[in-house]
Computed example of a mutant assay.
Amino acid sequence: MAANNTSTLSLRSILEKDKLNGTNFLDWFRGLRIVLKQERKLYVLDNPIPEQPAANAPRAERDAYSKHSNDSVDVGCFMLATMSPDLQKDLEHLEAFEMVNHLKEMFQQQARQERFDTTKALHSCKMAEGAPVSPHVLKMKGHIDHLERLGFPISQELATDLILNSLPESYSQFVMNFNMNNMEKSVSELHLMLKTAEHNIKKMPGQVLMVHKGKGMKTKGRSNKAYKKKPYTQNKPKNHNKPKPPKEGVCHFCNEPGHWKRNCKLYLEDLKKKKSSETTTSGSEKK
């Protein structure tokens, strides 16, 4: 029995150290439920005190009412004791069930904003090239776990996709193999696989296959310089030597070199004489 009392006091001390102050309702409420579950009084937060039974009601009914009333007083006092003084003044007139509902309405907007901020932080996580993978995955896992505590759990498949999508280009081969093999891993299992992949990437940084859209995979281990495209140059036609005009040879009329027959002065003069003589002859014949 003494051990149970010690355990109860130990659990209550957790809430007494981290009192409700208006910014930590979700954590405080989760701790409160843990303590009351251990003390078998959690039902007080989920059910209002029933109406007081009549004096002639069955004893079991009167005992149940008495126990619920007493437990509600104990839980209400414990809740007030773990709140800031300002909240105590506002809620001390309420019993435990009413107090919890009032707090939920009061901090509903806070919970919504916290969910939005956590979701935004999760989706904006991007791992820088060369950064260690373990802190990055643990940071994302923290956001995922926090959303679950807020009452909005993320499925294992979506959590895996978010982490894979946040990895840099050096992990593209790992991501491709993971998806092609239809792997189903928890975040913790994926974390271990990524640590192994990180070791291999650091060991052989040039051996990572780079996947490009619609172009398959590049060759392993080559420098990016090898893939730089050379500027396009149109093939110029080869300069063929144009046939040179033949040099002037020996005239076939005067047998002198340096000109052709058609350019020979003697030949042209002789040609004129022949035409003149032919003209004279044809004129005399007509007479």
Rank of each mutant, 00 (worst) to 15 (best):
N177S: 14
M176Q: 14
N165C: 14
N165Q: 14
S134P: 02
S172K: 08
I163K: 05
A159E: 10
E157S: 12
S134L: 13
S166A: 14
A121C: 11
P168H: 07
Y171L: 05
F152M: 05
M176D: 15
S134M: 11
M127T: 06
N165L: 13
A131D: 10
P132M: 04
F174K: 05
S134T: 11
L150K: 00
K120H: 15
K126D: 13
M140F: 03
P135C: 06
G151F: 01
V133K: 00
M127W: 07
G151V: 04
P132L: 03
I144C: 03
Q173D: 13
D145Q: 10
G151W: 03
G142H: 05
D145M: 09
S155T: 11
L147Q: 01
S155R: 05
T118C: 14
D145N: 12
A131Y: 03
K139W: 04
H146F: 06
L147V: 03
L122V: 07
F174D: 05
T119C: 14
L138C: 09
H146C: 04
N177Y: 13
V137G: 01
L162D: 09
E157C: 08
N177G: 11
K141P: 00
L164I: 09
N177K: 12
G130F: 02
P168I: 06
Q156L: 12
L167F: 06
E148T: 11
P132C: 04
L158F: 14
L122S: 06
Q173C: 11
G142P: 03
S170V: 11
T118D: 10
G151T: 01
I144Y: 03
G142L: 05
V133D: 00
S155Q: 09
N165G: 15
P168D: 08
H136R: 02
S170H: 09
T119H: 12
G142D: 07
N165H: 13
M127Y: 04
G151S: 01
D161S: 14
E169D: 10
A121D: 12
D117K: 15
M140Y: 01
C125M: 13
S124A: 15
Y171W: 05
G151P: 00
L167R: 02
G130T: 03
A121R: 12
S124G: 10
A159T: 08
E148W: 04
A159G: 12
L147D: 01
L150D: 00
F152H: 07
Q173L: 12
D161R: 12
L147Y: 02
I163R: 05
N165D: 15
D145E: 13
G130D: 03
C125K: 07
K126G: 07
P135V: 08
E129A: 06
V175C: 12
I163A: 06
T119W: 10
L122P: 00
A128V: 11
P132Q: 04
K141L: 05
I154M: 08
T119P: 02
E129G: 02
C125D: 10
A128T: 09
P153A: 00
H123P: 03
R149C: 03
G130N: 02
L122N: 05
V175N: 08
A121I: 08
E157V: 12
H143M: 10
A159P: 04
S166Y: 10
K141G: 02
